[in-house]
């Protein structure tokens, strides 16, 4: 029977990711930090909330960095929130943190004086709540998800890929930022599909049915 590994590195609300996956599939879901189990799984989710320094620290301490580098070569892989940010080269969080370097680019903070360009109204940070996701590419993970659907976000940093080609969706908060990335068998989202009600469950459903091929 096929299985999904949800990488557990001691950070964040892994259980809600597992619960959402449970809702959309009968596949076995392993919430684990065991390298063997992760390497053996058919697909892998890297979730995460919290500070980047702690996240990367735990990933390295558990020896999961090399495991992640291995699985992103071939398995359908989904990064969520900090799990998306960790794929980049470097994050400015915590006075600068080296990340996994899987997708070229950096992680930047929202500016302190962030404002809505139309109304000039000051915007709060963290960017928290339901915002619209504008799909820039066709992708199996967007199946049955209408353009501009709302997903739940909570973050103070956002990814800035070195080139625009991996950007799969854009969201506006003061300015547009990359809210989803796609490259080959890797997909990553800044929002929390596990907290985005039916739309989020649809994305997980698409992920568990994805063969890892990009259009």
């Amino acid at each position: 029977m096929s299985s999904i590994a949800v990488i557990d590195y001691g950070m964040g609300n892994l259980h809600s990711v597992a619960k959402a996956l449970n809702r959309v599939t009968d596949m076995r879901i392993e919430v684990t930090s065991d390298a063997e189990l992760i390497l053996r799984a058919d697909r892998v989710v890297l979730p995460g909330v919290g500070a980047m320094r702690d996240c990367m620290g735990e990933i390295k301490r558990l020896g999961l960095d090399s495991v992640i580098h291995e699985v992103v070569k071939s398995k359908p892989f989904l990064g969520v929130c900090v799990g998306m940010q960790a794929l980049m080269d470097f994050s400015e969080e915590n006075e600068g943190t080296q990340c996994l370097g899987i997708i070229p680019g950096t992680v930047q903070p929202f500016a302190r004086n962030l404002a809505d360009p139309l109304t000039n109204q000051k915007l709060k940070v963290p960017h928290m709540g339901w915002n619209q996701v504008y799909q820039l590419i066709k992708h199996p993970l967007w199946k049955d998800i209408p353009q501009d659907s709302r997903f739940y976000f909570v973050h103070s940093y956002y990814v800035q890929p070195a080139t625009p080609d991996p950007v799969a969706a854009s969201t506006a908060y003061g300015h547009p930022f990359a809210s989803a990335l796609a490259r080959d068998n890797v997909f990553a989202v800044q929002f929390h599909p596990e907290k985005s009600q039916q739309t989020g469950l649809t994305l997980y459903h698409n992920f568990v049915n994805w063969n890892g091929e990009s259009p």
Binding site: N13, H15, K19, V154, H192, K195
Partner: peptide, 30 residues
């Protein structure tokens, strides 16, 4: 609730220790 409702959940009342927070997050609170 967390197994059936997929929106953010906040829990308050009697949160006094880091271990209280850990337990609530593990239970499915965001």
């Amino acid at each position: 609730v967390a197994g059936q409702v997929f929106i953010p959940l906040t829990v308050g009342g009697g949160i006094r220790e880091l271990s209280d927070i850990r337990r609530m997050l593990n239970a499915g609170a965001d």
